[in-house]
């Protein structure tokens, strides 16, 4: 069991030969792969993420990009050291001697805890800041859309205009703050517009609200239901059209509203 090649018996101090060489190599590989990984991610991200159509969605997308960029070195650390070990320290068949008896020095333990804590704290503060921004109160010209979820259709009202959408469409004016008031007539539904970064549950007997968002891009998007509500849950669908003000006003009138 105990063999001459077990160096250094002081419970964790670096044995003489071998260790700095392996460690240095692994760290270099880790650094190089992390840099490459981050670069690849930043290049590829605009193609993977759907285009952001609201101010909130832009913030959320940026959060995804930053989070992933930060995760790359963390993931690489585990994979590089694991992979390096499996290649370099592997033995064929049953080993006849034991590995180097390493134990983590207190400085390593504290350092590790410190780095992970800093990362967590950063993510937490980022999340809290965005959350705080979302709770800002509505401007005076905020459009209010009332959303009613039912098994298996969403229906929409514009109480400020006395209009209700005649079909499976929400029309929104670009560059104007909008807030959704959501409720359900029967069971739980999940009101979600991916492109606008809007998502909140529809609860029976309660009215829940989304943050105030401003659509920034003209286009057509979709509403999905993201809380299982029975038979046609995956068929609950509506269109969201973000249009300019004139088109929006004309649409409101056509749906029975008054400006």
């Amino acid at each position: 069991m105990s063999e001459p090649n077990i160096e250094g018996s002081t419970g964790g101090a670096s044995p003489a030969r071998g260790e700095p060489r392996h460690l240095r190599r692994a760290i270099i590989i880790w650094a190089v792969l992390s840099v490459i990984g981050i670069a690849v991610w930043l290049a590829v991200a605009p193609f993977i993420l759907p285009s952001a159509a609201s101010n909130l969605e832009s913030t959320d997308d940026l959060t995804i990009v930053v989070l992933t960029a930060l995760s790359v070195p963390v993931a690489m650390f585990v994979w590089v050291f694991l992979g390096y070990s499996l290649f370099v320290f592997r033995v064929k068949d049953r080993p006849t001697e034991d590995g180097v008896p390493l134990q983590p020095r207190p400085s390593l333990q504290i350092g590790w805890l410190g780095v992970t804590s800093v990362l967590c704290l950063f993510l937490l503060i980022w999340g809290l800041v965005v959350f705080y921004q979302e709770t800002a109160s509505a401007a005076s010209n905020t459009l209010v859309v009332r959303v009613t979820g039912q098994q298996w259709l969403w229906s929409f009202d514009y109480p400020q205009y006395g209009a209700s959408s005649q079909s499976q469409v929400i029309e929104l004016p670009v560059n104007r703050p909008v807030q959704f008031l959501v409720t359900s007539e029967d069971v739980l539904h999940g009101f979600s517009i991916r492109a606008l970064g809007v998502r909140v549950d529809a609860n029976p007997g309660e009215v829940t609200t989304t943050p105030v968002i401003t659509a920034t891009q003209i286009g057509s998007y979709t509403v999905n239901c993201v809380e299982l509500c029975g038979l046609y849950h995956s068929y609950m669908w509506e269109a969201v059209n973000v249009v300019d003000d004139t088109t929006f006003n004309a649409w409101i009138v056509s749906q029975g509203g008054h400006l």
């Binding site: 098994q151 029976p204 068929y235």
Partner: peptide, 27 residues
């Protein structure tokens, strides 16, 4: 898809949500 949106199911509970939408409404 087509669906009926006037709840009528489950005679026992006077169709209060969510009961009115179960049974035949679902099937």
């Amino acid at each position: 898809l087509w669906h009926c949106y006037d709840p009528c199911g489950d005679t026992q509970y006077a169709r209060k949500p969510p009961f009115g939408f179960s049974g035949p409404m679902w099937t």
